[in-house]
Amino acid sequence: MGSIRRSKTKRRTRDLDQVHSDINTPETLRKLQSQPVDEDKPGLGQFYCVECAKYFETDFAQTVHRRGKIHKRRVRMLKEMPITAAEIDAAAGVGVQKYQEYVKKYEESKKGDSEMKE
Rank of each mutant, 00 (worst) to 15 (best):
T84Q: 10
R5P: 10
L16G: 10
V103M: 12
F56S: 08
E57T: 01
I23M: 11
S3C: 07
A90Y: 02
T25M: 13
K69H: 13
K98N: 01
A90K: 02
C49Y: 03
E101H: 01
R6N: 06
R73A: 05
K110N: 11
G93T: 01
K110P: 02
T25P: 10
D17R: 14
D38N: 14
E57P: 02
E115R: 15
Y55Q: 02
K110M: 13
N24Y: 12
V50E: 02
E51L: 06
A92W: 09
H20N: 01
E118C: 15
H20I: 00
K98E: 00
E115T: 09
S3A: 08
G68M: 04
L44H: 09
L44V: 01
H65C: 02
V37Y: 11
R76F: 06
V94Y: 09
V50C: 05
D89I: 01
E57C: 06
K104S: 08
M81D: 14
F56H: 06
Y55S: 00
K69D: 03
S7A: 12
R74I: 05
T84P: 05
V94G: 12
R76I: 06
Q62T: 09
D40S: 15
C49H: 05
I83K: 10
E101D: 12
V75H: 06
E118D: 15
F56A: 08
G93A: 00
L78S: 02
L78R: 10
A85C: 08
D40E: 13
G93K: 00
R14E: 02
G45C: 03
K31G: 00
T84W: 04
R76Q: 12
L29E: 08
H20C: 04
R30S: 13
T84Y: 05
K104N: 12
K54G: 01
V96F: 00
K104C: 14
G93Y: 00
E108K: 07
V37M: 09
I70Q: 15
R73T: 13
K111V: 08
K105T: 05
K117V: 14
